[in-house]
Design a binder for these strands. Structure first.
Lengths: 191, 191
DNA sequence: CGTTGAACTCTACGTTCGTTGAATTGCGGC
DNA sequence: GCCGCAATTCAACGAACGTAGAGTTCAACG
């Protein structure tokens, strides 16, 4: 009975680790997630994670690396009027939060940003380069950057209430319902 | 030279601990804050904290206990029209975030909610009983609860971007600027 | 079929953490 | 001035953590 050494077959382990890590970081944030707990879920020794990713930090970076293409949130909006654009943005965002893989990444960033300066920086740069760049040009306002940031604030707040705080009204609302209420507000920011 | 035993004079230590704890939990959240680090800042032995508060959990609860009376956010709004009410809410909220003591509590709740289920529950109940109760009655909408929650989402999002992610545009904006942009949006939710 | 390197586990180290129990010192009432 | 109780520190515990190093098994290629 060999407990040590390489396993037969083609290894899928590395990808398994990344999936479990994404999930764990998304569920509990960077600080509260231990390498050992991730390793347990993949039925693997903690040292293997270090072997693959160098450190907990490295695993964190690898797990949350651009699985989310935020430009997809904002593609093909320029030809629309502000009203339709706002609806699309909110709808696509909610879809991202519905899908397990991408939700883990978004929540991982948000959850970890509050306890780790590094994660906060990741999130900040992510928001700046990807979202605000696209959004900022959507409006001709002189304070376009600020207005775009407030849109992001609204979206992040929704993620917080729906998936972290789990506030009943927000959890229970359907995506369509949310879009119909939130989109006009986003519209207000962009116009 | 007596390093142990009671100190002469009237002890202010307990309150010092609470202040430092509030600050620490507000800065780094529950998980990332150690009893030892708080004890250090008060120049006191970690064991004293558990002597006073029983456990880290007890200290957390004591530190974040109702220093914020959110009803103040919403008092005296009923006589105003929706527009003025929205401006008052946003303005008062930003003032809460400006004052060190209350900001620590709000950020402590938010930061800790993401890594501790207990803190998430605290924040949820806080929001439900204090904010949504007041806000929900402000509007006659059938989905008043949801609309009020989205107002809260917007406000929490602003706190996140301004104090956690430290997104430039939001950090630099003046309170007046923020009020003038955000209030109409809140108004949209409540109307 | 032998070799090399990748995939994996074991053990163990040094830290840090929350918490405990006992000891020490000062305060306030009798 | 004595006594009980409050305030405080000390030393230590067991657990959990991230990580390092050495060892074992397998796959791929010559």
């Amino acid at each position: 009975m060999s407990r040590t050494g390489r396993r037969p077959g083609a290894p899928k382990t590395r990808e398994d680790i990344l999936v479990a890590a994404r999930r764990a970081f998304g569920d509990r944030g960077y600080e509260a997630t231990s390498l050992r707990s991730i390793a347990d879920k993949v039925h693997v020794d903690p040292a293997l994670l270090v072997h693959y990713f160098g450190s907990k930090d490295g695993l964190f970076l690898a797990a949350l690396e651009v699985t989310v293409r935020p430009s997809a949130l904002f593609s093909g909006l320029s030809s629309l009027d502000v009203r339709e654009a706002a609806e699309l943005i909110v709808g696509r965002y909610l879809a991202v939060l519905d899908q397990e893989q991408t939700r883990d990444v978004v929540l991982g960033l948000v959850r970890s940003a509050v306890s780790s300066e590094r994660a906060a920086t990741m999130l900040r740069e992510f928001l700046l380069e990807e979202m605000l760049a696209s959004l900022g040009t959507l409006t001709g306002h002189p304070d376009g950057q600020l207005r775009a940031s407030l849109v992001v604030a609204q979206l992040i707040g929704i993620a917080m209430l729906r998936h972290v705080v789990k506030l009943d009204a927000v959890v229970r609302a359907s995506n369509d319902e949310l879009v119909s209420i939130v989109a006009p507000v986003i519209e207000g920011y962009l116009r």
